[in-house]
Simulated assay, not measured.
Amino acid sequence: AATGLRSVHAIRPAPALGGSGVESARKALTGNTFDTHVGLDRNRVVKASSRPPVDFSSDVGRKQFGFSHEEIDDSAAYYEGQFKLFQRSGQGVLHCPELGSKYQGEFESDRAHGEGQQVWPDGSQYAGEWRRGQKHGAGRYVSADGLEYVGQWERGRRHGEGHQTYANGDTYNGGWHFGVCAGPGTYNFSEGARYEGFWVCGRYEGPGVLYSPDGARERRWYSGGTLNKREVLPD
């Protein structure tokens, strides 16, 4: 039974889930900082600095109230939707066709706020709740390389309970703390093994149990992601 467990573990070393290195790699792959501000994001997909004059005679330009069309950055991007006190507020679409960036949903004070969907130039996308331009609440994110997260967000980061599916087929279901795995959770390896335990700062911590595909079980003790002790459990 112990041999079977070692072979499963050899397939993939225990990952430091959600750590800063993983986040950096995913950021490089997706071009998404996980806390992008629509209209004011770090990638500067759309800038709101160039504003055409307000036109009260037609539905073009910023308005005090109601629907209008606003062109941004010499027509490279545009906003169509509701305005309140000359700011984007209510339902609207902020679109940059040249780059392939688009947000459609609710706005407040020129920022995504409420329910909305964002698509980034690399193809990654998010659909769910926003607060002051950041992912906040319940939502679903899919990266350009196939990583998917469904769960809670706070201030642009995964926070609370969530389920993440990695591009290789592995999954993690459990707690998150501002972007990294934290608290009790379950990690399912695509080969069929399963680890149930506790995470701190994105790493295995304390006792947990590894279940192999053939039904064998092994109790493990970790400290900061490092395996300190293992014990084969009886059938």
Rank of each mutant, 00 (worst) to 15 (best):
Y103R: 03
W176M: 10
R42W: 07
G151H: 12
T36N: 15
H37C: 10
G185D: 09
E98Y: 11
Q152V: 02
G185C: 09
K27T: 15
W199P: 05
T226A: 09
P207H: 10
D145T: 09
G224E: 06
P213Q: 03
D35A: 15
S58H: 01
E98A: 13
C201R: 14
F34C: 06
S49F: 05
F107A: 08
G215Y: 00
G4Q: 10
H136F: 03
W120C: 00
G185K: 13
Q87F: 12
N168L: 05
R42I: 13
G128Y: 09
C201M: 05
A138H: 15
E129H: 04
W153G: 05
S89L: 01
R140K: 12
V200W: 14
P207S: 10
G197L: 04
V54C: 15
R111L: 14
V22P: 04
E70C: 08
S223A: 09
T186N: 11
D35V: 10
G116M: 04
K47V: 04
G151A: 08
Q164P: 00
K135L: 00
Q125K: 14
K63V: 12
V180R: 08
S101H: 08
R26S: 11
H113N: 04
S101C: 14
G197P: 14
V232Q: 15
E148Y: 01
E106N: 10
Y195K: 03
T33G: 12
Q134I: 02
G146L: 11
A76K: 10
F67C: 13
K63H: 13
G197V: 00
A138M: 14
E108S: 00
H113M: 08
E196D: 14
G169L: 04
F198P: 00
G156P: 05
P97C: 05
L210Q: 06
K27H: 09
G225Q: 06
V119Y: 07
N43L: 05
P121T: 07
E115S: 10
V46M: 06
G105N: 04
K135E: 06
A10N: 11
S58R: 01
G39R: 01
N228V: 11
R203C: 02
G197M: 09
A77H: 06
W120S: 02
D110A: 00
G61T: 04
V38E: 06
P213T: 00
A2Q: 15
T226I: 12
C181G: 02
L85W: 13
E154G: 14
G133T: 00
G19S: 13
P53V: 00
A167S: 15
R6A: 14
A144L: 04
S124C: 08
R230L: 14
R217P: 08
Q134V: 02
Y166C: 10
Y222R: 05
G183I: 09
K27Y: 11
T30S: 15
Y126L: 07
A10Y: 05
S75G: 10
E154F: 12
V119T: 09
R26H: 12
F178D: 12
E129G: 11
Y103K: 05
L17D: 09
A16H: 04
Y166F: 13
G185M: 10
G202Y: 07
R157G: 02
N228C: 11
D35G: 11
H113W: 05
G215W: 01
K135W: 09
N168D: 15
Y78P: 08
S68R: 01
W130F: 05
V22I: 14
S212W: 02
R155P: 03
